[in-house]
């Protein structure tokens, strides 16, 4: 068929892999966001700030120690700590007032963004990856592709698997799932629900921080990224359904692919496709693809 020959397969495959990379990153950020919402109904509008904070802390640690692993751990820990602090200081006692929680989170994201700008300035940073990931991997048709990006896809798959194991195979996961279904009953069974909430905020924050360090290594870190990843998290969970990890994976895939293909083939309308996906999903399933009634 003549039209098949006209397609630039190399471009198409490269763009597809780029989309997959972005989907991996979106999934890691959005999975923390959706986990927090699923259990606590808190729309953490400061999630993008946690991403950016993790990235910056990771950068500092990697400069100081030269170890990428330490950067990963410290970035995740810093974001987790701030997440726990937010739940402890604000969201906890506002339980049930979802709009107020969202507004406070917006206020916190403004302050955090400004303080981070004050400390790290407008410069763009990038973390140094270990040497073994700085190479290229040979792939048919497109010849070679950065190993770091493939690593990111692998890491996202690992994190997804880890979350699935955590939620289905551990006691904490069982408590979390029980809390999503019937919080009152869980409390009645004598579980310290506020403590579980703190734990979930720690996990959600850690996922944002982890994504920050990974994103800061494979892509880059700069002010404004917080808003970008908040937006992607919002759209991913709106598309995938709030509170569902699998939904976040599907949503991340759809959104990232729409964005990447859109930018590659119609550069000035890239973002429009993302919204077409969102509107189309909302038209068919107002609660997202895998969303359930609250």
């Amino acid at each position: 068929m003549p039209f098949l020959a006209e397609i630039n397969w190399r471009l198409f495959l490269t763009v597809s892999l780029n989309g997959l990379t972005l989907a991996a990153l979106y999934f890691v950020v959005a999975s923390g966001f959706t986990l927090i919402f699923g259990l606590m109904r808190v729309v953490n509008m400061a999630h993008g700030s946690l991403y950016l904070l993790g990235a910056y802390v990771g950068y500092e640690v990697s400069v100081a120690t030269g170890s990428w692993g330490a950067a990963l751990v410290c970035g995740a820990a810093a974001a987790a700590g701030v997440g726990v602090l937010l739940q402890f200081a604000f969201f906890g006692w506002m339980h049930g007032q979802d709009l107020r929680q969202a507004l406070v989170a917006i206020g916190i994201s403004i302050v955090l963004a400004d303080l981070m700008l004050a400390h790290w300035g407008g410069t763009t940073y990038q973390l140094d990856l270990p040497a073994m990931f700085r190479s290229f991997t040979p792939i048919p048709v497109i010849h070679r592709y950065p190993t770091a990006r493939l690593l990111l896809i692998g890491l996202a798959a690992l994190i997804g698997l880890g979350l699935w194991l955590l939620l289905t195979r551990t006691r904490l996961g069982i408590l979390i799932r029980a809390g999503v279904d019937d919080r009152g009953m869980l409390e009645a069974l004598g579980i310290n629900v506020p403590l579980v909430f703190l734990g979930v905020f720690a996990i959600g924050g850690a996922l944002a921080g982890l994504a920050g360090v990974i994103g800061g290594s494979v892509l880059s870190i700069s002010p404004g990224e917080d808003a970008r990843y908040l937006l992607s998290s919002l759209i991913v969970v709106i598309v995938g359904g709030m509170g569902s990890i699998l939904g976040a994976a599907i949503g991340a895939m759809l959104v990232a692919m729409a964005e990447t293909y859109g930018l590659a083939y119609t550069p000035t309308y890239g973002i429009v496709y993302t919204f077409i996906v969102m509107v189309a999903v909302l038209a068919i399933r107002p609660r997202g693809l895998l969303g359930r009634a609250a």
């Binding site: 109904r41 729309v43 509008m45 979802d98 709009l99 969202a102 808003a227 937006l231 919002l234 759209i235 709106i238 709030m242 550069p267 000035t268 309308y269 890239g270 973002i271 429009v272 993302t274 919204f275 969102m278 509107v279 909302l282 038209a283 107002p286 609660r287």
Partner: peptide
Amino acid sequence: VAVRTEGIYTLMITLAIAMGFYYLTLQNY
């Protein structure tokens, strides 16, 4: 688009639309 959802979802969707429009104005010449 927004009225298909309720409460906190309206906030999220309108914020997503607002930011989407921002990126569109930035990208589009």
